[in-house]
Amino acid sequence: MTRPMRYATRQRGIAAVEFALILPILLMLLFGMIDAGRALQANIIMVNIGREGANMVARGNTPLETGSQDIIYMLMASAPPLDVNKRGMVYITRVMGVTSGGVSRSVVLDQYRWDDAARGLGYRFSKYEPASKVYGCTAWNAAACTSISSKTRPATTIMSGKLADGEVVHVVETFYDFDMLVADKFNVSAFGPDLYSMTIF
């Protein structure tokens, strides 16, 4: 009678030790799956925002010179549950094809970004301002890039050689500083830190 009871007690003790050893791995897998789901959701939201923004800009109902912030604000208002005010950024860039000497290239006409005033950010907040991958503007006047002039149109690799002379496309870039629960702690950057989407219309 005593031997089976000791055996059963020992088996329960071994099972408890095995469970204690496996539990951290199971928890890491669980939180990793939650992280991946959150990252996928955030990425889908930012891609959809970029597509909708390019569609709105290309329709031409709102001039970018005066209405870029209105367009961006409408897009970002549809971004919850993401905290885009502090962790998001949008760039709208107009790119035109230019042909000279039989060679066609793409140049930047103008560029706009989400202004801090529209985001409700003051200098007391840390600003999230990743650089555009279409054109790195060096001087900003609130939301408009001022380093582009009609005399010096900077070249870009976007649609280079694919646009007819005078053809214009709109490029909308969306960025989101995604904060992962587990991966950031272990220096795994599969989804971040910047989620990025580019839509050309």
Results as ranks from 00 to 15, higher is better:
155 A>K: 15
28 M>D: 00
56 M>N: 11
185 K>F: 04
65 E>P: 01
78 S>K: 14
36 A>G: 06
140 W>S: 08
91 Y>Q: 11
112 Y>P: 08
53 G>I: 04
177 D>V: 07
46 M>I: 07
175 F>T: 04
200 I>V: 15
193 P>E: 11
29 L>F: 13
13 G>N: 12
197 S>Y: 05
188 V>P: 09
20 A>I: 11
80 P>W: 00
127 K>I: 05
119 R>A: 03
161 G>A: 10
54 A>Y: 04
153 R>G: 06
155 A>M: 13
157 T>P: 11
158 I>L: 13
28 M>R: 01
161 G>F: 09
99 T>H: 04
83 D>W: 10
54 A>Q: 03
70 D>M: 13
108 V>A: 02
49 I>K: 06
57 V>G: 04
56 M>F: 10
115 D>F: 14
74 M>L: 06
6 R>A: 14
190 A>N: 03
2 T>Q: 12
153 R>D: 01
63 P>W: 01
11 Q>P: 09
129 E>G: 08
172 V>W: 09
109 L>H: 06
124 R>V: 05
187 N>I: 01
39 A>Q: 03
45 I>R: 02
96 M>F: 03
148 I>L: 10
142 A>I: 12
17 V>W: 10
59 R>H: 11
200 I>D: 00
140 W>Y: 07
139 A>T: 14
50 G>V: 05
28 M>K: 06
186 F>M: 13
13 G>S: 09
181 L>N: 10
156 T>M: 12
120 G>A: 00
83 D>T: 08
119 R>T: 05
147 S>G: 10
195 L>S: 09
190 A>H: 03
189 S>C: 01
154 P>R: 13
134 V>G: 07
13 G>P: 11
64 L>Y: 02
